[in-house]
């Protein structure tokens, strides 16, 4: 495993730890989109269906279990925890899941490496992951104050796929791996969606101002 891949996984893990800290210690999910969190559950469930069938490494299996478990528990807290659920900005989190799920599923049926259940679900999970942040970004744009934890969470979540892009470049040129258009292009789109957020995040950090996205 190269350093970019590890950096990607660690920023992904750190983003989840930050979000869980906000939820468990601060008892708040203010500014967090339940829609996006539910999409991540779908992403992990459809991508890791091979968990019980194929073994890659101890690291790989543990990380998959962690991503599945944490994403499900985040959704549970936001929906059912009696204190946390009251901090959820329900009225502004209005992005409809189906507008992302349906096109991604149709695209996965049409463009995939092999027309098998596992392969189509895996492809679907990559397409869906690329756009799953959209409800979260819409929610941030509608929020007046974005607290530091939420801003850092979204930043780390975006940085994770950017590191994966570097990892894919490294694997292609240095480790001589094959071309993998589906994850590469999905990952590129996923990172590009964050471009605007990255710009305002870095700007607010440089000017030591509170993060605010223009409407």
């Amino acid at each position: 495993m190269n350093a970019f891949r590890l950096a990607g996984d660690m920023t992904h893990l750190l983003s989840i730890i930050l979000l869980l800290h906000k939820i468990r210690a601060m008892k708040s999910c203010a500014g967090i989109s339940l829609r996006t969190q539910e999409l991540y559950v779908i992403v992990f469930v459809t991508r890791y269906v091979d968990l019980s069938m194929k073994y890659y490494s101890f690291y790989n299996s543990i990380m998959k279990i962690v991503f599945l478990g944490t994403s499900i528990s985040i959704v549970w807290y936001m929906r059912y925890h009696k204190v946390v659920k009251q901090t959820y900005n329900k009225d502004v989190d209005t992005f409809r899941h189906i507008f992302l799920i349906l096109p991604c599923f149709v695209l996965a049926l049409l463009i995939n490496r092999a027309f098998t259940v596992i392969e189509v679900l895996w492809t679907f999970s990559l397409y869906l992951e690329a756009v799953a942040i959209l409800p979260q970004l819409v929610l941030l744009q509608r929020s007046r104050n974005i607290d530091n934890l939420t801003g850092n969470y979204v930043f780390l979540l975006g940085a994770y796929r950017a590191f994966y892009l570097l990892n894919w470049i490294y694997r292609f040129f240095i480790e001589n791996h094959q071309v993998r258009w589906i994850p590469w292009l999905s990952g590129l789109l996923q990172t590009a969606i964050y471009a605007d957020f990255f710009y305002y995040y870095i700007k607010s950090w440089k000017n030591r101002e509170k993060l605010k996205l223009p409407a």
Binding site: R5, D9, H12, D50, K54, Y56, S57, N60, M63, K64, F67, W122, Y164, N167, E175, N176, H177, Q178, V179, R180, P183
Partner: peptide, 10 residues
């Protein structure tokens, strides 16, 4: 020749 595709990523 290039290495075969492995889904060892997350």
């Amino acid at each position: 020749s290039r290495r075969k595709i492995s889904k060892d990523e997350l």
